Simulated scan of single mutants.
Amino acid sequence: MTNERKRMRFELLLERFFSNFHRILLTNLLFAIPSAIVFGALYALNNVLFHGAISLPLSLTAIILLYPFYSGVVMVCRNIARGDTEVKVVKTYFSAIKSNFGHFLVHGIIIYIIVTFSTLAVSVYVGFLSSGWFFYVLLFFSILIALMLLFTIYYIPLMSVTYDLPLRYIYKNSLLMSFGEFKNNIFATIAAGVVFGICFTAVAFIRSATVLAIVVSLLWALLLPAAVTFMIVFFIYDGMTNIMRNKEDISGELTEKIEKGLKEQEEKKAAQAAQPVKDDFSDIDISSLKDTDDYIFHNGKMVKQSTLLKMIREQQEKAGESQSDPSNPAE
């Protein structure tokens, strides 16, 4: 019997990527259709409003407009990354858009705000570096915060297509995993960086603006969105599902303990209610009691002696009935 060598993670990455490359290509082409419409409209609007000058806030609105369609890319790449062998790209793509359109539109707005302010903050502090060392500190913290937000953005779309959760839990869990899954986040960033590096190499020596625009458009339409998404999802999916599964197990255990505790309390109350409550007459001398209306101090109250005698006799009668009952044999 031969033992097969356990394949390294890098080998699985390459195997799943290249064996499903035609699916990744088709996913890119599907996403390229709304991309072309959005980029074309924003380019025309930018020319009208700013006469050819590039407006960063306006250009980044593409994130909001395209993010609902990006849900299809995430769903297809998630299925490929986790090892599904028969992924129906077109059906999966449009099903994801239909199911997640509203949530991803909100995600797009949130991510637009994050990206816009992070970009502006870093660019401003870079411009002021010559003014003093304090701006180096601000730049460092800006980059650090931007990196944590980038890791958070990794999880937001993946968690949305994988779990049916309210938005606040998606953002909370994604932010926590940006810290808790730091190693996998770094691997995902490196893998995505490799894809961008290959694309940059392909266009670095092009001098013609027209040719450059054509090559960049082709790379976007055929490779970039799904390839980068696949790389990120491959490295973070297992860690995310393990954490979410552990949370469900812990939640289930807590629920079980709470239910068990409530059941024990109810059983205890029922048992106490079933037992006869005996009055305590240890604070008085029973032999001195008389059947009169004279009052005597008992359990912090003044009670008639005749009433106490009646209570004592009733308790004695109940005790006698309990002893004579065959269902309650004496010890």
Rank of each mutant, 00 (worst) to 15 (best):
F182V: 07
Y171W: 14
S160N: 15
Y163R: 07
Y154G: 01
K172R: 14
I170A: 05
E181K: 05
T152C: 11
T152Y: 04
P166M: 11
L158W: 00
E181F: 04
S160W: 13
L158A: 02
R168I: 15
Y154I: 01
P157N: 11
Y155E: 00
Y171R: 12
T162F: 07
L150E: 15
S160R: 11
R168D: 15
T152R: 07
F182Y: 11
L167V: 15
L167D: 14
I156T: 10
S178W: 01
E181P: 01
Y169E: 10
T162G: 07
M159V: 10
N173T: 11
Y155N: 00
D164E: 09
S178G: 01
N173W: 11
L165W: 12
Y154T: 00
L167Q: 12
I153M: 13
S160D: 15
Y155A: 00
Y169Q: 13
Y163A: 03
Y155W: 02
K172M: 14
S178D: 00
L175D: 08
G180D: 05
L165G: 05
L165K: 13
E181W: 01
T162R: 10
L158N: 00
P157C: 12
Y163P: 06
R168H: 15
F182Q: 05
Y163H: 10
F151G: 00
Y169M: 11
S178P: 03
K183C: 05
K172S: 15
L176H: 04
L176G: 02
D164F: 03
T162S: 14
S174Y: 01
V161P: 05
Y171N: 11
L158Q: 08
N173Q: 13
F151W: 08
F182G: 04
K183E: 01
T152W: 07
K183N: 02
G180P: 02
S178L: 02
S174T: 01
T152K: 06
Y155S: 00
L165H: 09
L165I: 09
P157R: 05
T162A: 09
P157H: 09
L176W: 05
F179A: 07
I170F: 06
D164N: 09
D164A: 07
P166F: 13
T152L: 14
P166V: 12
K183G: 03
R168M: 15
D164R: 09
Y163M: 05
K183M: 03
M177C: 05
R168W: 15
P157T: 07
P166Y: 12
L175W: 10
V161K: 02
Y163Q: 05
L165S: 08
I153D: 14
S160E: 12
R168A: 13
Y154W: 06
Y169F: 13
T152D: 10
M177K: 04
Y155I: 00
